[in-house]
């Protein structure tokens, strides 16, 4: 009921970022990855999360950042801790990389994963689900597959709402999720999972019927409504993204961003 709203992170504004072509929006994700993937020096990675953070503000999505604050904090901390322990683990003493190098690698990795979280948060904030599936079709994904993805998006809040109702109803009958061992607590999900599944199945039948009744499954050629067209701003942004990627790649090729013993 209430949580339905919280599933969708899209912020309905009309900013420059919102007006971009869906494929350019996905391009932000791709460019983030392509730029910093190979870079292991934290100072060189750092501009990416900063830029993405600024874009997030520009998109009016600061609220989403606040909602994800725990994750935005935990991701770099956990990543840093993990890699400062695991970097070069198991190598013999002679080949072991110096400690400072492990720290640098861990910091760079923390910033990289933080950038991925930020870029997907940015994309979720500015991309409507139908734009996302349109972009998938643009990338050659068959219609029925992209439609299924869109339908799954539509059903998530429905099933989430139903799961929450079931939890409330079972709690009213005395079900307590907090008592007992891990196994005992897991078993208490049976009274939640069964009604949610049965509800979904009751619906499945009607959904298949409703889809067919609206023409799904016709063998005649489907028509396609053109939802978005490329505008000059998309070319500008696309070129800018390409330039960033190119700059990072050439920096890497010139040897910047690489750690001593690594590759």
């Amino acid at each position: 009921m209430r949580a339905e709203m919280r599933v969708n992170l899209y912020i309905d504004r009309d900013t420059f970022l919102h007006r971009l072509h869906p494929q350019v929006k996905l391009g932000i994700l791709a460019a983030t990855f392509a730029s910093i993937y190979a870079i292991d020096r934290p100072l060189l990675v750092a501009p990416a999360p900063v830029a993405l953070g600024l874009l997030l503000f520009a998109a009016g999505a600061a609220g989403n950042a606040r909602r994800f604050a725990p994750m935005l904090l935990a991701v770099p901390v956990a990543t840093f801790t993990m890699w400062s322990l695991f970097y070069g683990y198991g190598a013999n003493a002679a080949a072991a990389p110096p400690r400072s190098e492990a720290m640098e690698f861990a910091a760079a990795m923390a910033l990289k994963l933080e950038s991925f979280v930020l870029s997907s948060l940015l994309c979720l904030s500015i991309t409507r689900v139908e734009e996302f599936t349109e972009a998938l079709r643009g990338l050659g994904v068959p219609y029925r597959v992209s439609f299924t993805v869109a339908m799954a998006f539509r059903l998530v809040p429905l099933f989430l709402g139903s799961a929450l109702s079931v939890v409330t109803a079972q709690r009213a009958r005395g079900l307590d999720f907090s008592r007992g061992s891990v196994l005992a607590r897991l078993r208490r999900y049976v009274p939640v999972i069964v009604p949610v599944f049965m509800g979904a199945l009751r619906r499945a039948d009607a959904m298949a019927m409703a889809l067919e009744a609206r023409g799904f499954g016709r063998r005649t050629r489907r028509a396609s409504f053109v939802r978005s067209r490329l505008a000059p701003r998309d070319l500008v942004v696309g070129a800018a993204l390409a330039a960033v990627v190119l700059a990072y790649l050439s920096a890497w090729a010139l040897g910047y961003g690489r750690l001593g013993g690594g590759r």
């Binding site: 339908m151 539509r154 409703a210 889809l211």
Partner: peptide, 10 residues
């Protein structure tokens, strides 16, 4: 069931 006949996100 009005929920079962809506498949789209807008």
């Amino acid at each position: 069931d009005f929920e079962a006949q809506l498949f789209s996100t807008s």
